[in-house]
Design a protein around this nucleic acid. Structure first.
Lengths: 147, 147
DNA sequence: CACTCTTCCTACCAACTAAGTAGGAATACT
DNA sequence: AGTATTCCTACTTAGTTGGTAGGAAGAGTG
């Protein structure tokens, strides 16, 4: 699996939004506090103008909602426990597994190589199992126990 | 997971070599019949000069041995049942999972994103489980039952 | 209305990688 | 000597990734 900078930044930004909302006392139920892009960029060391494009993707995917103006910013549309890592990856990245740039399920093998398609599908399923089971809340909880 | 053209071709070529050796009656035990690069390229629709570089990688990784000259070609160094898909992928591709071009195990997260590293390691493990369990012989057997 | 702050959106640039090509040197057999 | 094949290096080309710039549109304030 290749995790692009875009996908990496997207996850870090989502975690930072979830953390900011959760730390204000609403129990991480989402939708509360608005966080500004500039604040996210600074807290996770992400180039601001690059981050803005990523946040736009996340909003279009329905994971964030935003508000403009002086008191504007971003917030989760759902509780952190209902947003999985896979949701975020698919919002910015497309397919989890790709073969030569194409999604794994249309490979076009012939002859003796026909079985390879099933291997890629099995890999895709195994990845999905991990990333769909892990939620943002899980990751935040890990962090809390460490610090 | 991203499967590059190189990795894809490598697997198809290995399968074609294994098949050619197996169909000569030695039971697929490897090391027998030599197959020419040109024959592999034609049977699996791979650009010949590109394939030659890939075969070189596979030989350097110890999966193939080669012989030059008029009756030259390539053959497996081990039986097809002892070569896994993961062996081939690692021979041509490097790490199975990478984050922004770096191997998954050195990510450098801080703050609230610290838990991400464990996610990537879990993904890497899940992929490895699939590709290390599947051997070339498994894939050839699948093909045999279909055709 | 005028002003400020923020998200929104498009276009663009530089660097890198992947995919494929070309041409020849080394080796093996006849 | 000659031929066939692997071996190896350098190169080209096209696409993607990571990142920047500059403004338009909306939201609040006096």
């Amino acid at each position: 699996m290749y995790v692009s900078a875009r996908a990496d930044y997207a996850l870090r930004a989502m975690l930072a939004v979830a953390d900011a909302a959760g730390s204000t006392g609403d129990g991480g139920l989402g939708g509360g506090e608005l966080v500004k892009a500039a604040s996210l960029a600074e807290r996770q060391d992400i180039p601001l103008s690059f981050l803005q494009g990523i946040l736009l993707d996340l909003r279009r995917a329905g994971l964030l909602h935003s508000h403009r103006g002086t008191e504007g910013g971003y917030a989760l549309t759902r509780p952190a426990g209902e947003i999985s890592v896979g949701d975020v990856l698919r919002a910015v990245g497309g397919a989890l597994t790709s073969v030569r740039g194409m999604p794994a399920d249309r490979a076009g093998y012939h002859g003796v190589a026909a079985g390879l398609r099933d291997v890629w599908l099995a890999v895709d399923g195994a990845i999905a199992l991990v990333v769909d089971r892990t939620t943002l809340a899980d990751l935040l909880a890990d962090h809390a126990t460490v610090s």
